[in-house]
Design a binder for these strands. Structure first.
Length: 404
RNA sequence: GGUGAGUUACUCAAGCGGCCAAAGAGGGCAGACUGUAAAUCUGCUGGUUUAUACCUUCGAAGGUUCGAAUCCUUCACUCACCA
């Protein structure tokens, strides 16, 4: 294959799913140089260690980084260790609590560990921005500030809006994009990737690299923000609409299957490793009725489960799913609770953590959502006698109870 | 700094002395129908071993009253207009 062909293939894969690329020519050049001379380049992406677990929303970026690694990129996995300990850059709309150093440290541990399920560790450099940001002298900091103007900062949508509405903008908020951009100066990144909501900050890196005469300006690739399970809001832990990369396999499978058909295509595009052509084919098949959307969704779910739980696990999760939900069987793996003899059904539901309160248990019972050994129970005074039972609330929650 | 308006459950938002655990909408949970999809329909949506009972809740603390989310005082925060 010629260098041109290699480059074109790589570029196409890199572009996939991206929302916008700034300075695509630069990326093309880096790829070409890689194929000509074997010279690698750096790709930076920043992560906030505000939570210990990654979800699929994060992996959209990680997968893109992995793609770069396939084509000569060396990843600069930047942990916002400095910014995370300071506070809230996006104003009161999203009051973020300030994390202690220990918390941040713990988060970073599990965070990176999870990230390496996708990234190639040999081509990844984990860097922490407190290493250089903490060392900035006031003079250096002011020099950094002097590189930009207030007018420029107000170009950022978020700031623009708030300024127009005469809402407060804390002065330190202005410094966040600058600090983030400064990371690119220190790291001399060739490319930075991030979510589309980060556009302003990503571009800041470019501008600061110029201002500091780094000798290059990073290309920028923006990925869309992945919607959560509700299909509307972005995937986030606080909204509870996420699929965590550490989610148990069967649960992960189920969550994927619960997304709407519309959202499924979005997940295909951003999470699957199927080619875009193949996806278009699937879509066509579904549109024509020759393919059942649920089968397509199951394939996606399997793929995702395999990625995080290993080969074979996707198929297993699928089989289990079909056993339980299509054929209405009891799951093979059940959490087991030991309960006292002659316990009331209401109390039992709470003790097994199927419901949060006795009242909720009564409501569910009344609604006909509770089953014991596949038999519906509606009498709230029902007493469970000695034995082993399967207790079920709703379609999805099963528990095994052992009553002494 | 001055003046005025506001702060209600997960969110928005009614309530302006007892009938308020607090309307309505959204969200969520559950049931029916399905494919753990969408759409639709229905029920539920503070807690307490279900009680025409008690407890906690309407920014915070005090007060008036038989009785307060509702009235008064102080404090905190938010918003608007003026300087």
């Amino acid at each position: 294959m010629s260098i041109e062909t290699h480059t074109a293939i790589a570029l196409a894969e890199i572009e996939r799913g991206s929302l916008e690329i700034i300075d695509k020519e630069a990326i093309e050049k880096l790829l070409k140089t890689y194929y000509q001379e074997g010279k690698t380049y750096t790709v930076k992406a920043g992560f906030d260690p505000t939570a210990p677990d990654l979800h699929l929303g994060h992996t959209v970026l990680l997968q893109k980084l992995a793609t770069f690694q396939k084509f000569g990129g060396h990843v600069q996995f930047l942990i916002g260790s400095f910014t995370a300990t300071i506070g809230d850059p996006t104003g009161k709309s999203e009051t973020r609590k300030v994390l202690s150093k220990e918390e941040v440290h713990r988060n970073i541990e599990s965070y990176t560990q999870q990230a390496f399920k996708i990234l190639d560790p040999d081509k990844t450099q984990v860097v922490y921005n407190h290493e250089w940001l903490e060392k900035l002298t006031p003079m250096e900091f002011l020099q950094l500030l002097s590189k930009r103007t207030v007018a420029r900062m107000l170009e950022r949508d978020d700031f623009k809006k708030r300024y127009k509405n005469e809402e407060d903008i804390a002065i330190h908020e202005f410094t966040y994009p600058l600090l983030q951009g400064y990371d690119s100066v220190v790291l001399k990144s060739d490319i930075e990737i991030g979510g589309s909501d980060q556009k302003f900050n990503l571009l800041m890196g470019r501008q600061l690299q110029k201002a500091y005469e780094v000798g290059k300006q990073q290309a920028v690739l923006m990925m869309p923000i992945l919607e959560g399970l509700d299909g509307v809001q972005k995937m986030s832990k606080s909204l509870g609409n996420y699929i965590g990369v550490t989610d148990e396999a069967n649960n992960m499978f189920g969550k994927v299957l619960s997304v709407s058909d519309d959202l499924m295509w979005r997940y295909y595009e951003l999470l699957s490793s199927e080619s875009l052509d193949a996806i278009a084919g699937l879509k066509k098949g579904v549109g024509e009725g020759s393919l059942h959307p649920m089968d397509i969704k199951k394939a996606l779910a399997s793929e995702i489960v395999e990625r995080f739980h290993g080969e074979g696990e996707g198929r297993k999760a699928k089989e289990e799913f079909e056993r339980v939900f299509s054929h209405k069987n009891i799951p093979t793996q059940l959490k087991e609770y030991k309960l006292e003899a002659n316990i009331g059904i209401i109390k039992a539901l709470v003790d097994c953590e199927l419901v949060p309160s006795l009242n909720q248990a009564r409501r569910d019972l009344k609604a006909g959502a509770v089953k014991m050994d596949q038999e519906k129970v509606t009498d709230e005074h029902f007493i469970i006698t000695q034995g082993e039972y399967i207790l079920q609330k709703g379609k999805k929650s099963f528990v095994k109870i052992v009553v002494k």
